[in-house]
């Protein structure tokens, strides 16, 4: 999947450039970035668990 490859290469490249790592991620799937507790439910075919 080309999109995934792109994303991963960006992350790797950023780490190779410097000995310092600092980043923050957020969940892209929900409007407010919160995903709360979905360990059990929410297993749609495209569902992202942990």
């Amino acid at each position: 999947m080309p999109k995934r490859e792109e994303k991963r290469s960006v992350k790797t490249e950023a780490k190779e450039k410097t000995n310092t790592v600092a980043y923050r991620l957020k969940c892209a799937k929900t409007a407010n970035g919160l995903s709360h507790f979905v360990m059990y439910g929410d297993v749609s075919k495209k569902k992202t668990l942990l």
């Binding site: 991963r8 992350k11 600092a22 980043y23 923050r24 991620l25 942990l50």
Partner: peptide, 21 residues
């Protein structure tokens, strides 16, 4: 740089950068 192996692949890809150095 091993944190991505602690997630399901699709889970990791579902996160986007808020910021990075």
């Amino acid at each position: 740089g091993k944190e991505k192996y602690c997630f399901r692949e699709e889970g990791w890809d579902n996160l986007v950068y808020n910021y990075q150095l």
